[in-house]
Amino acid sequence: MQQVTQPAPAFSSVGIIWIKLAIVYLMIGVGIGIAMGASENFTLRPVHAHINLLGWATMALAGLIYSVFPQAGMSKLAKVHFWLNNISLPVMAIALSLLVNGHREIVPVLAASEIAAALGIIVFAANIFLNLKKA
C-alpha cells in the first residue's frame, strides 16, 4: 500500500526580516547576559530582559505570525509595527542602560521610547484583529 504524503504548507517569506532581526536581538541579549555573569554586575538586568522579550521573543513571534498570515504581514499596519518596534527598542535599551547607571536626565527619552513601543504593540494587535480572517 502506497502512502500518500501531503506537501508541506507554504509559508510566506514576509516574516523573514522579523525573524532575522529577532536573532540579532537574541545575540545582543545573550551577550549582555554573559557580560553580566562574567563581571558579576547585574545592573543591566532590565535591559537584558527588555531586549530578550521585546526584541527576541516578540519579534520572532511576529515574524512567524506574519509568515503564516501574509495578509497581515504585508499590511501597512505591519510596516508601522516594524518601524515603531525597531526604533523604540534600541532607544529604550540605551536610555534604560543610562538610567540604571545614574543618568536621571534620560527619563524623558526613556518614557518616549516606552510609549512608542507600546504603540507598536497596539498597532500589532490592531493588525491581527483586522487582517486575520477565517479561511
Rank of each mutant, 00 (worst) to 15 (best):
A78D: 04
V123A: 11
G15A: 08
L21Q: 02
F124T: 04
G29L: 00
M92R: 06
S12Y: 01
I115G: 01
G29A: 15
L21N: 04
V123I: 14
M27R: 10
L64Q: 00
T5H: 12
S75M: 04
L130F: 08
G37M: 09
F11A: 10
A118P: 10
K133N: 11
H81R: 03
L77G: 10
A111F: 05
S13G: 09
L130V: 10
G63R: 01
G15Q: 05
L64T: 09
K76F: 14
A118M: 15
A38S: 14
A112I: 13
T58M: 13
H81A: 05
N131R: 07
F129Q: 10
L89P: 03
Q6R: 10
I51P: 07
V4R: 11
I19S: 07
P46C: 11
A111D: 06
G63D: 02
I94K: 02
L26N: 07
Y25C: 02
S75V: 00
S67H: 03
I87C: 06
V109L: 08
R45T: 15
I16E: 12
I65H: 07
L53K: 04
M36K: 08
L110C: 11
F11E: 08
S88I: 04
V123W: 01
K133E: 06
W56C: 06
A117M: 08
S39F: 12
A8C: 07
A95Y: 03
V123Y: 00
I106D: 00
A116C: 12
L89N: 03
T43Y: 05
A135I: 14
N86Q: 06
K76W: 13
R104S: 14
A10M: 11
S67Q: 01
F129G: 05
A112K: 03
A8I: 05
A49L: 12
A112M: 13
L54W: 06
A62S: 11
A112H: 04
H103W: 08
A135R: 11
G55E: 00
N131L: 03
L99P: 00
F42Y: 15
T5S: 10
L96R: 00
L44D: 01
A111R: 09
E40G: 09
H81P: 11
Q3A: 13
A62H: 03
V30I: 15
N101D: 04
H48N: 05
A78G: 09
L77S: 13
N52E: 15
V24W: 13
A35S: 14
V68M: 01
V30R: 06
A112T: 02
L44M: 07
Y25A: 02
E105R: 04
V30A: 15
L64M: 15
L99E: 04
L110G: 05
V107S: 09
F124H: 07
G33F: 03
V80Y: 13
L110E: 01
A111W: 07
G33K: 00
L98C: 11
K20N: 11
M1L: 12
T43G: 04
I87F: 15
H103V: 14
